[in-house]
């Protein structure tokens, strides 16, 4: 059944796009329907492709389908989940507490996740050093305004 997820998803996204394109506001200038033409075209191609893809998967239903299997092996789901959370925290903190601290936290978090707790010393050193180097390189040398 898993094999049908993507084709169905593609078709559904296409249909959503089709509907929202039709409901786009009309333009007062030039052709009132102008803004919807291109989205309609894309949505149609997407729906057709989704259906063809579904048919192809249907024909290949006897074959082994391994595409999602990697998600269930070992620690990988944990890694993905934790890094997603770390990224979201980073996004929230970035402008609140400033570049330097948030980056040190983010880097350290990822390093503890991947590199393990045993190497805590090197993790912390790497996190601090790299954050400082980038902070200096972007903020001072390249004059990028960082929070």
């Amino acid at each position: 059944m898993v094999r049908y997820i993507t084709p169905i998803l593609a078709t559904v996204v296409g249909i959503i796009m089709l509907i929202s394109a039709i409901n786009l506001p009309k333009s007062n200038l030039g052709n009132p329907n102008g803004p919807m033409y291109f989205p309609l075209l894309i949505a149609s191609i997407l729906i057709i492709s989704g259906i063809v893809y579904f048919y192809q998967e249907f024909k290949a239903r006897g074959n082994d389908f391994a595409d999602f299997r990697a998600l269930r092996i070992g620690k990988s789901p944990l890694y993905l989940l934790v890094s997603l959370i770390l990224m979201l925290i980073y996004t929230v903190l970035f402008e609140r507490i400033g570049f330097l601290y948030s980056t040190i936290l983010f880097l350290a978090g990822l390093l503890f996740l991947l590199n393990g707790r045993k190497k805590w010393m090197s993790n912390i050193i790497i996190a601090v050093v790299f954050s400082f180097v980038t902070w200096y390189a972007f903020g001072t040398l390249l004059q990028v305004s960082l929070p």
């Binding site: 890094s83 990224m87 980073y90 970035f94 980056t103 983010f106 880097l107 990822l110 390093l111 991947l114 590199n115 393990g116 790497i126 790299f130 954050s131 980038t134």
Partner: peptide
């Protein structure tokens, strides 16, 4: 294990 976190940071 060290390279990936650094790439992530640079990406952000």
């Amino acid at each position: 294990r060290v390279l990936y976190p650094v790439i992530m940071m640079l990406a952000f």
